[in-house]
Design a protein around this nucleic acid. Structure first.
Lengths: 234, 234
DNA sequence: AAAAATGTACGAACTAGTTAGTATGTCAAG
DNA sequence: CTTGACATACTAACTAGTTCGTACATTTTT
């Protein structure tokens, strides 16, 4: 979708120009240096390419073409194909983290807090298939790139703390009868939400079912919440 | 695991020779026609290559080298790289189907039947990481190859029928209070079992947890069963 | 002028697929 | 029970095209 990218690019650019108080649009063949924009542009295109074709299947030339800049810039900023892939991966995880933090679940009753968290996870995976695919791809590579990135490794601890808090409160208040491990609970939730997106195609093909159908989605959203809650209550 | 493959190869070969009543082992550089064995040999090697590196990442030359035959034979038997990949996929699914059938769950009480089915699914995914990886890879490709294979499409219906039967009996007997959709239940089970294997690396890295640890495995095996059962009972 | 950013063109290595020819088994005819 | 024709199984070397990465030139910014 080059038109969208171009539109977005222009928007940012004119915004910047306004702030700078100077006209500096791209003329006929005149060049305008905009390093940060170039980086972001490359990352955006690369995310789609790698999410669609995988690391080995993704083509550097294809990314370069869809970018408003050249292949040279990919190597200038990211060093190598793997470097670019890692940057894509890191950026995707960073986005997630920022979204996940502010839910204020401590204010809610344990059961309601957990239901909210589950719904959020569900919606997140549903809304970010690219992220889900990148994680799948990374698993095929035995998480080799993730291991090399400190940024990604120190992640998601907050979710576990949140769940741990909810479980403790719930147990003390007698709402939950089971003392469960927060990481296990996180996995139970994640597995279902993730699988729905990651395995959409094979599952859909075998069982002739469209998992993105709103009705199915709603039912599943309720189901995983009920399953987790009833597990903890029994 | 080349040693295993070699051992198996020899076993089959000598068996065949005994039946034929003729010695025909490979001499210095003499050739021995053995089409079926050649096919199987290629498939075995290709399964590992594709499961490890993906479709785009898997190298035909690498497969050819690890095979006791040549690259030309891959094209002779499978036509193309994609043809080989499809054959690998089909074979993997075929194996699964044969294993899944004979459990005789109709003889058991609904709850016990479901627990047995869940344990079987869990153990299966745990024991077949290659299969799990191939399915992940196929999903990255939007199940494009699967769609072209009739063999794979007409699959897994038996599991759904089995679950449907268990759910019905359970509901009639009053063990299960909830009327659930069998495909949804299958997904709830599959998602957890599959995710544990497919996302082993990223999950393990982020939460510093070894999912193949026997203790963790046992706990998870019980957890998914408890979660499904308590979901149905409430 | 120095430094940072960018574009063009190209090359070295790799890779899927092919060509051209050889070995082996089989089966009917002598 | 040979012989020879024919189909199947197989090998080695090669090719056409792709793909990552880079050298060099140029422009913009400070």
């Amino acid at each position: 979708m080059p038109p969208v990218a171009i539109a977005w690019t222009s928007k940012i650019k004119s915004l910047k120009c306004t702030v700078a108080g100077e006209m500096a649009e791209r003329g006929e063949n005149g060049r305008k240096n905009d390093p940060q924009q170039t980086r972001e542009d490359i990352l955006l295109v690369a995310t789609e390419e790698f999410a669609t074709h995988g690391l080995a299947g993704g083509r550097v030339d294809a990314i370069a073409e869809k970018t408003r800049t050249s292949k040279r810039m990919i190597y200038y900023y990211f060093g190598s194909k793997e470097g670019l892939y890692l940057a894509v991966l890191e950026q995707s995880y960073r986005k997630i983290r920022s979204l996940e933090a502010d839910l204020h679940l401590a204010d809610l009753q344990p059961e309601e807090a957990l239901r909210t968290l589950i719904a959020t996870t569900f919606d997140h995976d549903e809304a970010n298939p690219d992220f889900v695919r990148l994680v799948s791809i990374e698993n095929i590579h035995h998480a080799a790139h993730m291991l090399r990135s400190e940024a990604i490794r120190d992640l998601n601890v907050s979710v576990i703390e949140t769940i741990a808090g909810i479980l403790e409160r719930g147990f003390e208040e007698g709402v939950f009868r089971r003392k469960a491990d927060p990481i296990d609970i996180h996995m139970l939730i994640s597995a279902f939400c993730f699988f729905r997106v990651s395995n959409r195609y094979t599952f859909g093909t075998i069982f002739r079912r469209d998992l993105s159908d709103p009705g199915t989605m709603g039912r599943h959203r309720g189901m995983i919440a009920d399953a987790v809650i009833s597990y903890l209550k029994n």
